[in-house]
Design a protein around this nucleic acid. Structure first.
Length: 870
DNA sequence: AAATCCCGCCAAACG
DNA sequence: CGTTTGGCGGGATTT
């Protein structure tokens, strides 16, 4: 154990060196904290004691934070604290003695008191071990076993922490028991991405609705006759929310194989959603109650599951503890009329919308330089695919089809994550992800590669999942329409609301776009469906927009053509075929094959996430049953990160099919098993939303459901394709994403719904054409990047660590073309078009107008008491 | 009594 | 088949 610790420390030191200053401070603090223990400290008992005592060395900032947090809250008495400390050292037995000495009185306290074991404290300890802004060059590997031992906690607890950190891309899974620490580099990027997604999902609106609803209930119900209520309901239920799965980011990594393939763990997804709520809501204060409802998606019958609600709350506390340790949120109480409710206030950095964001720059810069090596290593690790296997089993409920699809997907994904493979990884990762086929792509790839090399990560992948759409979209047009209608209303409210809320978003949008330039691309995964709740959906789905990065390149033509095809296909596809019409040709075929096969086989890959979503949704969905199913199928559009794509290319296919295992790490493509799936709806969607959809010739993607996919891709020029289900081409996803952000694409319907946020505005304009702006991007990005980086640090950490980093990074960043490409997409130049796009918007507008009365949100209330904890 | 949330069973996923 | 992950909810602690 000690050894381990030592190791750990070592890393810190490294960091420290750079950051030296803080360290000292921290130590002092630590020392204080430790004071009590000194005697015991280090020496004694092995397990716990050491940690504590030594822990000090932890990272500076972290230590402080921990101490503070831990201590202050507890407040009770220092004595107690002491006691606690003592305990640690002494262990239970010794405790008594110690205690006596210490405070004497309360031996009681001495017990390990629950607080000592709190996840928050544990998280602080954990964070103390690593620098906020680790030097990429260094190995920042985290061995779960070691950590668990050192911190002497059960492994289970470590998972809780790591999962949340992973959702913020502060760590990424390398392999089986190993994670890589990224610290807060990327944090802003991640948050920006999450914010974008949150906007898309209309979380702000949802929140408003819930609040409103509550208020109404409380007081009077009278007013809302039906309509309003309906609207609300519709919003909440039907519209749904989309759920998303997991947003991946940027540079960070890769990977996610785990994420992708596996079911996504709810904790990860929940964490991201929870964060989104903060980022989107105006006050930036979110009550657990609301968060739980939104996350559950159901508002529907409230009571339904009380237990479910309770469980959700429990989990939210877990997540909140970790986020609190990160200083991203703090506990407060909101006093509404009725009473006070526990809530949390965002205390993290303000993020710009991102979409594109900032991320690009930073990551590349910082990480790249320093990191390269590390990057390589990481890459190897990454491999996204790692797990690829299927998973899914869990929910039987899933439809066979889905499963099959998933399985396919997995295969694709599958690259073996666990084993790290360095060599390839690098290449693969670096190489970005382009869609298969296209020559253009190839070119792009090259660029990306270059970029990557320079900057490893740039690309981000975000996966989002939104569930909602799926349902709607899918099967029937009619249904879809219906949904739309529904959504519209809801939208309306939101709109009305908008003012209240998120202004940030909406306004931002425009602004954002530019920012976006950097834009990372994200891949989104959608889940099928869940839908549920909030996302409305449909609109979203539309997301699909197809853009392809290539467009910039010049692919347009092809793209357009493809689009057409795609649309056609989409229509055809329907559930039955699920074909991945969208997918690139090659893929498609494959997809088809798979799909067919799949059912039976299944094997390897399946989209776990989907399943999850689906399963969850099912509850609600019962109603729709069939539709749902279809929906589920599509659900997600998964976008894969660019990198993957690239690798995928041709190989991807192969890999998908069988070898998932064999595949070299390089290729991890995700095939999207799904591809096949595109639902009919897509067609609808397309029609609606994207008229212009251009699919890339390649592929395409778009999945109907895909709403989800929004991506910004920075780098990947290539196309974005979204598959309804899983998408393989990351690039496309990226593209889409970017487009959306840019406004080029309309976020699809959904967006429109969304309030202010740009989404609405952005609309459709589909044409990517405009987009290609490369140069600008670059500039922007860089600028951004720098800013981004710096920003982060500012807030939080005292240390100045960040600074150094940035410095290094900046230089680098400038970079590479690849990124630029991405940036291009960002540009929204097209923005002009935006209004037009707005078709959806238009609708909304109308709606809005009508509705406004109700709109008012109940904001009223909340007084937040800032008391932190008390 | 309500709010928190620790603990760890146990199953899914993985290897 | 053994492990690793991690969903989940009982019930202990705090407030």
């Amino acid at each position: 154990m000690e050894n381990e610790k030592e190791n750990l420390f070592i890393e810190p030191y490294k960091r420290v060196l750079t950051k030296s200053p803080l360290k000292e401070c921290t130590r002092e603090n630590v020392a204080q904290a430790d004071l009590p223990s000194p005697t015991l400290g280090p020496l004694t008992t092995p397990t716990k004691p050491k940690e504590v005592s030594q822990g000090e060395p932890w990272t500076p900032t972290a230590n402080l934070k921990m101490l503070i947090s831990a201590v202050s809250p507890e407040i009770r008495s220092r004595d107690q604290k002491r006691g606690l400390f003592d305990n640690r050292r002494g262990l239970p037995e010794a405790k008594d003695c110690l205690r006596e000495r210490l405070s004497g009185d309360e031996f009681e306290k001495s017990q390990p008191s629950r607080k000592e074991k709190s996840l928050g404290l544990l998280c602080h300890k954990f964070l103390a071990r690593y620098p906020n802004y680790p030097n990429p060059a260094v190995n920042n590997d985290i061995c779960l076993d070691e950590v668990a031992e050192e911190l002497n906690v059960e492994r289970r607890r470590i998972y809780d922490i790591v999962n949340v950190l992973e959702s913020l891309h502060m760590v990424s899974r390398l392999a089986k028991n190993r994670y890589t620490w990224h610290g807060r580099h990327n944090l802003n990027k991640t948050l920006g991405t999450l914010k974008s997604v949150g906007v898309e999902n209309k979380y702000a609106e949802q929140i408003m609705m819930l609040k409103k609803k509550e208020s109404e209930q409380e007081f009077d119900f009278i007013k809302s006759y039906g309509i309003e209520d309906h609207i609300i309901k519709s919003n909440s239920d039907q519209n749904g929310h989309a759920e998303m799965c997991f947003v991946e980011l940027p540079g960070v990594e890769f990977r996610a194989a785990s994420v992708n393939s596996r079911k996504d763990k709810s904790l990860r997804v929940m964490s991201q959603k929870f964060v989104m709520l903060f980022l989107v809501s105006t006050p930036q204060i979110v009550s657990l109650e609301i968060a739980a409802k939104i996350l559950i998606g159901e508002d529907h019958v409230d009571d339904l599951d009380k237990s479910k609600f309770k469980t959700k709350i429990r989990r939210l506390y877990d997540i909140a503890n970790v986020l609190s340790s990160l200083d991203l949120i703090k506990k407060v109480h909101v006093t509404e009329e009725r009473g006070r409710k526990p809530a949390f206030k965002w205390t993290g950095p303000e993020i710009s919308p991102n979409t594109g964001g900032c991320s690009p720059v930073l990551p590349s810069a910082a990480s790249d330089l320093g990191v390269r090596r590390s990057a390589k290593e990481n890459c190897a690790k990454n491999l996204f695919a790692s797990r690829g296997k299927p998973n899914f089993t869990r929910h039987p409920s899933l439809i066979k089809l889905v499963k099959s699809i998933e399985s396919d997907r997995r295969k694709i994904n599958s690259a073996p994550s666990s084993p790290v493979k360095s060599s390839r990884a690098e290449s693969s990762q670096n190489s970005p992800l382009f869609p298969n086929k296209m020559a253009q792509l190839a070119a792009i790839c090259k660029m990306q590669l270059e970029e990557q090399s320079s900057e490893p990560r740039k690309k981000m992948k975000v996966q989002l999942a939104r569930s909602g759409h799926c349902k709607p979209v899918a099967p029937l047009d009619t249904s879809a329409k219906a949904e739309l209608e529904l959504t519209a209303p809801s939208l309306i409210q939101p709109l009305g609301v908008v003012p209240l809320v998120p202004s940030p978003l909406s306004p931002a949008v425009p602004v954002i776009l530019p920012q976006a330039s950097s834009g990372p691309s994200y891949a989104i995964y959608l889940q099928p469906a869940q839908a549920p709740t909030m996302t409305p959906p449909q609109g979203l789905s539309p997301t699909v927009r197809p853009t392809h990065s290539s467009k910039a390149v010049g692919a347009k033509d092809s793209a357009e053509a493809t689009n057409e095809k795609a649309t056609n296909d989409a229509t055809r596809t329907d559930s039955a075929s699920r074909a991945g019409s969208l997918l690139p040709a090659p893929e498609r075929q494959v997809a088809k094959n798979r799909t067919r096969e799949v059912p039976g086989e299944k094997g390897s890959k399946r989209p776990s996430t989907f399943e999850d979503c689906i399963s969850k949704k099912k509850y609600k969905e019962d109603l729709k049953g069939i539709e749902n199913v279809s929906a589920t199928l599509f659900p997600s559009g998964y976008l894969i990160p660019l990198a993957q794509c690239s690798s995928l290319g041709a190989e991807s296919i192969l890999s998908n099919k069988e070898n998932s295992g064999t595949l070299s790490p390089n290729h991890r493509i995700y095939s999207s098993p799904i591809t096949g799936v595109i639902p009919v709806t897509s067609s609808e969607l397309t029609a609606v939303n994207f008229p212009s959809f251009h699919v890339t010739p390649l592929k395409l993607m778009v999945s109907p459901t895909s709403v989800a996919a929004v991506h910004g891709g920075r780098n990947s020029p290539a196309l974005a394709s979204s598959h309804p289900i899983a998408i393989q081409n990351p690039s496309s996803a990226i593209v889409n994403f970017t487009l959306q952000h840019l406004g080029l694409i309309s976020p699809s319907v959904q967006v429109s719904a969304s309030p202010g946020p740009g989404s609405g505005t952005i609309p459709v304009s589909p044409r990517i054409e405009a987009i290609s702006i490369v140069p600008e991007n670059a500039g922007c990005q860089q600028a951004r990047a720098t800013s981004c980086d710096s920003p982060v640090p500012g807030q939080s950490q005292p240390n100045g660590q960040s600074v150094p980093v940035t410095g290094t990074q900046q230089p680098v960043p400038v970079t590479p073309k690849g990124s630029q490409l991405v940036a291009e997409s960002f540009f929204r130049t097209p923005s002009g078009p935006i209004k037009p796009t707005g078709t959806s918007c238009m609708d909304f507008d109308g709606a809005n107008k009508t509705s406004f009365g109700t709109l008012f949100v109940p904001q009223r209330k909340l007084e937040v008491s800032t008391e932190d904890v008390h």
